[in-house]
Amino acid sequence: MKSFVCRCEQVVAIVRKDFVVSLRRRAALAAMMMFALTATAALSLSTSGVVEPKILSALLWVIIFFAAGAGVAGTFDDEAQAGTLPTLKLYADAQAVLFGKMIHVLASLISLTVFIVPTFLILFDADVADGLLMVATLLLGLIGLSAAGTLTAALTTSAVAKGGLFPILLFPVTLPIFLPAISLTEAALTGAAFDGGSLVMMMMFDAMLVTAASILYDYL
């Protein structure tokens, strides 16, 4: 029990440290936001903003996925390049590092979403019929994306060409979130009846990704 308490303290310390650092070094966050904005503008311009809900929800998730790639890929590598990763790993417990990073990634993805979803809806002149479903779907999707993204970022730390590698590795393992998220987002936009089973499936998959990331990270 004692070790668990210590670990929580470490997680909080790491999240807070990452928050301060990302406010002072805004590049990753700014790149992620601008990527999402650029992609949204490009799509909206090229389609004159007239897109049916099914395609629209797919576009939204594709934007979130690749923007996350731009912002999350460097989670561990930035520290590895700066030489702080060995120090962090020495002084903190491995699981605390993983969960600290995961929470930080989730927080940055949530801030990305808070910025890009309203912008996206305005530029495509779309309305949300079921706001609660929209928020739930986004949150569940982002949790899974953070868990898988954090482990993937850890895997690509010592790889070359990681900018291209990260989305390649991340996409297959997040597909079980991606597919239900798109159909649920469509239902949230149109107000049509939705498959509650998909929400449960997303929750289960999120839980599995977090657990698997936690177990597998110890082997890295």
Partner: peptide, 27 residues
């Protein structure tokens, strides 16, 4: 490092298969 990271990715990706088998036919 290569052996470790690729083993971890192999196991991580195998976990998605049962979910795909359930989810994909719904879609």
């Amino acid at each position: 490092v290569r052996a470790k990271v690729s083993a971890v990715y192999s196991l991580f990706s195998v976990l998605t298969v049962p979910f795909l088998v359930f989810i994909v036919p719904r879609m």
